[in-house]
């Protein structure tokens, strides 16, 4: 599936860098080092950590898209960083588990 397919599933766009990018799996966690070490490349990362360090982690760990769960806000500095570094960010009102389940169930959408 691609990041743009998540929009069709009801996720809201916060910052679009490259919505054609492939998403191969889902990862949920809020501890940044944990995410660095364990989130697979090209994953959709669901978190409530809406700061610029989350954006930095996403760049360095090759994450396809950050998804802010439970309508978490992200600060302006983080959005600016996402623009500069080309990071996709989406938002949902769903809790992390429900968002992850929804994505997981749709992963094979265009295969």
């Amino acid at each position: 599936m691609k990041v743009k397919d998540l929009i069709n599933l009801g996720f809201e766009s916060v910052h679009e860098a490259d919505f054609e990018r492939d998403v191969i799996c889902v990862y949920c966690c809020d501890l940044l080092s944990w995410v660095m070490g364990r989130a697979p490349a090209d994953s959709a990362w669901i978190t409530v950590m809406g700061n610029m360090n989350a954006v930095a982690v996403s760049v360095l760990a090759d994450i396809a898209v950050i998804i802010l769960a439970e309508n978490m806000v992200i600060d302006d500095a983080a959005i600016a960083k996402a623009k500069e570094q080309g990071v996709n960010i989406l938002r949902t009102d769903k809790p992390a588990f429900e968002a992850a389940l929804l994505i997981h169930n749709n992963l094979d959408v265009d295969e």
Binding site: D30, L31, L32, S33, M36, G37, M49, N51, N53
Partner: peptide, 11 residues
């Protein structure tokens, strides 16, 4: 801030 998970050096 999301740091201090005790995973830095192990990673």
């Amino acid at each position: 801030l999301g740091f201090g998970a005790g995973m830095g050096l192990p990673n």
